[in-house]
Amino acid sequence: MTKRAYNFNAGPAALPLEVLQQAQEQFVEFGGAGMSIMEMSHRSSIYENVNNETQSLLRELFGIPDHYKTLFLQGGASTQFGMIPMNLLSEGKTAAFVQTGNWSNKAIKEAKLIGKTAIVATSEENKYTRIPDLSELKLPEETAYLHITSNETIEGIQYSEYPNTGDIPLVGDMSSDILSRPVDVSKFGLIYAGAQKNLGPSGVTLVIIREDLAANSPKTLSSMLRYDTHVNNNSLYNTPPSFSVYMVNLMLKWIASKGGVSAIEQYNRDKTNLIYDAIDSSGGFYRGAADAASRSVMNITFRIHTEELEKQFIKESEAAGFVGLKGHRDVGGLRASTYNAVPLESCKALAAFMSDFQQRNG
């Protein structure tokens, strides 16, 4: 095999080499069935065991309480932007949002199509460079739920702590930092995440939902759009993205082998600190795009003082084996995504490249 790239893609993103190699070994035949897991019925006992084991691993690693259900759905987080208000935003209620960037804006846009919405806090005036102060958060009367985006991949900002909403359900889009750090799931009514950043390949979306919220799914909705449909059928109502769920299974076992979510959190901080240190010690050659207090441990956004140098940085980094360092087209600049599976060695290599690039162009 040729040398693997230094993969800093924002998603689909890096997967551990060990996981890829195990999947390769089991690709043609899985579980002694004489066929790949992609070829077998999702009603088979072999696949049902994978489905159940993956849920159990999630519960153990993420500390999911017994009165929550874990679902493996399709359509990505983008489908959840509409499915959540369809299920939770009833007549006369308001969906409240904290507006922190591109992905929260997309969630707001979709919810407006379903019912009444309110932006209760925003950092738009700061160009989404920080998480807004939520210490004196006031929610409208008859609030159905408060929605937050725990980590904004494009702007590179992340919540350090979550708001306490009392009896009002807190809904969290954790697509880009799920299982990257411990979370008190009991603070949330619903958590959702696309798998393609920290949990596995694209194709499956994780939903963690409190049982009482799922049970109240409106019976007027199409069956596929109701959470209770998937709860009552153990995520097997229709054909699931079976290979993606299997890959999530392997990824969860990999996280467990590394010491669990707390150990992964420290590993992620060690990786991220290497790159933030390269930015902060550059004397202004590099500039972090996010406010220091809101910096993401998953997506490091930064700039160089001229666009010409940024273009040169991208060109030279690609030639050196780095992938995915170009900032999102909406904001420009540079971005390194350091999700769970990005190796420490890749971050060390990037920090060294940044130092060398500065010495040659500073």
Results as ranks from 00 to 15, higher is better:
199 L>H: 10
252 L>E: 11
71 L>S: 08
142 E>K: 13
290 A>S: 15
107 A>M: 01
114 I>L: 12
97 F>C: 02
358 Q>R: 14
86 M>Y: 06
76 G>C: 07
208 I>A: 14
343 P>D: 06
336 A>E: 03
236 L>G: 03
105 N>M: 12
338 T>V: 15
213 L>Q: 08
14 A>M: 12
236 L>S: 07
173 D>T: 00
348 K>T: 14
73 L>A: 12
254 W>T: 00
228 D>R: 11
204 V>I: 11
176 S>R: 05
13 A>N: 07
332 G>W: 07
117 T>C: 11
218 P>A: 12
261 V>Q: 06
46 I>C: 00
284 G>A: 12
43 R>Q: 12
227 Y>M: 06
131 I>K: 04
229 T>G: 10
145 Y>D: 04
362 G>D: 14
144 A>N: 06
140 P>N: 04
179 L>Y: 00
133 D>S: 13
122 T>C: 08
97 F>Q: 01
349 A>E: 05
340 N>L: 12
261 V>K: 06
295 R>E: 09
85 P>A: 02
165 T>P: 08
167 D>N: 13
189 G>T: 10
280 D>E: 15
184 D>K: 15
207 V>S: 04
114 I>K: 09
110 E>G: 00
313 F>L: 09
239 T>V: 11
173 D>F: 00
168 I>W: 01
27 F>K: 14
218 P>H: 13
218 P>G: 13
143 T>A: 10
137 L>V: 05
22 Q>C: 05
314 I>A: 01
178 I>G: 03
154 I>S: 14
362 G>A: 14
52 N>A: 15
169 P>F: 02
99 Q>R: 13
144 A>Y: 09
191 I>V: 14
138 K>F: 04
57 L>K: 05
180 S>N: 05
194 G>M: 08
125 E>D: 10
190 L>K: 02
251 M>G: 09
307 E>I: 04
204 V>P: 04
209 I>M: 08
15 L>K: 06
46 I>W: 01
247 M>E: 09
114 I>Q: 07
98 V>T: 08
274 L>Q: 02
153 T>R: 14
148 I>V: 15
153 T>N: 06
268 N>V: 05
350 L>K: 06
28 V>M: 10
291 D>F: 02
120 V>I: 12
13 A>W: 03
9 N>D: 09
